[in-house]
Design a binder for these strands. Structure first.
Lengths: 221, 221
DNA sequence: TGATAATTTAACCGGTTGGTAAACATTACA
DNA sequence: TGTAATGTTTACCAACCGGTTAAATTATCA
């Protein structure tokens, strides 16, 4: 039997919704800071404020919790890239993408760390997602970027490494938050650091791709 | 008693040198791919090809192994930044720094992942190093960069976020290697990816900082 | 309200984990 | 070669870990 007992009830109850939500929230917290192997069911149960067997009534295994979490998070994690619009102005699109990714790093650092932990440790549980949906989406957007480069709208560059660079620089502020704050020191590490980062990164990528801000109001149609 | 039995011998033997080296090498492998909590002494002993009690003869605890490893790795991890020369040409220095960091990501990915794991999980065991030696070194180099910007040698920018961006983009190729390879696919993921990355990143940062390549042969002294 | 479905808890289990004690084996050196 | 110092193994332990069972409790609704 692969299903938890809660999934075998005749109807789906309010309590099930609430508790599963509560558990996934706790699991996110724990997995994000300890990785899969480093996390224990007891820890998650503790954060969720319930007993271990009670938790296991809703998710049969630790794996099941992790799987549910990854599935839910993967979609929202890919959203910023999906919004990347082939029809839009290259500079506007790239700036927008950087901004959205940076906002995610600020507002959902645990989600970012969940992935980082997983990928860092060899992505044993999300390999399929990486080679499937993720790769497809990136391939699609890479084609767009390459077309922009060919049309002379941005500098000629490898679109994949451009995307990697945007991922790396933005997620850095979630994944390496402790280091960032340690280096900036107590004074400079306030919430303003995300605005400073945004300013710097927009400059870096806009100048770096060899295109100025769109000269006049070519507001996208 | 805080010392392992091997440290209490009258003289330091050849076997001690060899075995400790062997253990740290194995510990690097295991810690880098599993994080601290996710790693077991048995795993490390297994990789090192010795029994657990034998290993514990040289390092009394898992913590001790990790500590020894971090201390050793921290220095070499900071080396590329130390080489950053205030007297040099800004573009040359920044390109050189990118190149050295990228080489480290290629040649010592486990060292990079060891740190990434640690920082990602809140840096409980290296907080002091981050706020001490690391911060000091970065502060020092940030001053240099700021001076360059003030002198108009590079674009005005926040030197800290510039350094973060270089760290993020280069270490990405070690820490997120699985993802990079998954996205590039089997064809494009050969060892050439590091050269592609170098080409892209040099362009990004050199153009991004608003300075062209030094016009003529100012080959560094 | 009572019966039934849904939820929670207490008690437990086998395997793993970090670490120890002490017997045993090997090395170095007089 | 003998012997003391060094190194390795066997056997072990208590705590932890993922997960199960069954009984007790609570919610739902006719």
């Amino acid at each position: 039997m692969a299903l938890p007992r809660a999934a075998k009830t005749q109807r789906r109850t309010r309590i099930q919704e609430e508790k599963e939500e509560l558990i996934l929230e706790a699991a996110l917290e724990v997995f994000a800071t300890n990785g899969f192997r480093g996390s224990t069911i007891d820890q998650i149960a503790d954060v969720a404020g319930m007993s271990k067997p009670n938790l296991l009534y809703y998710f049969r295994t630790k794996e099941a919790m992790h799987r549910a979490l990854i599935e839910r998070v993967l979609d929202s994690w890919l959203d910023p890239l999906r919004e990347f619009d082939a029809e839009g102005n290259p500079v506007t699109e790239i700036r927008g993408y950087i901004r959205r990714k940076l906002e995610m790093a600020r507002d959902f650092p645990r989600e970012s760390r969940l992935f980082a932990n997983e990928v860092l440790q060899g992505a044993p549980r999300i390999e399929d997602a990486l080679m499937g949906p993720l790769k497809s989406l990136v391939d699609e957007k890479a084609t767009v970027i390459r077309a922009w480069a060919k049309a002379g709208k941005i500098a000629k560059c490898d679109p994949y490494h451009l995307i990697f660079a945007i991922w790396a620089t933005t997620q850095h502020y979630a994944d390496f938050d402790v280091q960032v704050r340690a280096v900036l020191g107590p004074d400079r590490a306030g919430e303003g650091r995300f605005e400073d980062a945004a300013r710097f990164l927009e400059m870096l990528f806009v100048n770096g791709l060899g295109v100025g801000v769109p000269s006049t109001g070519t507001s996208g149609g």
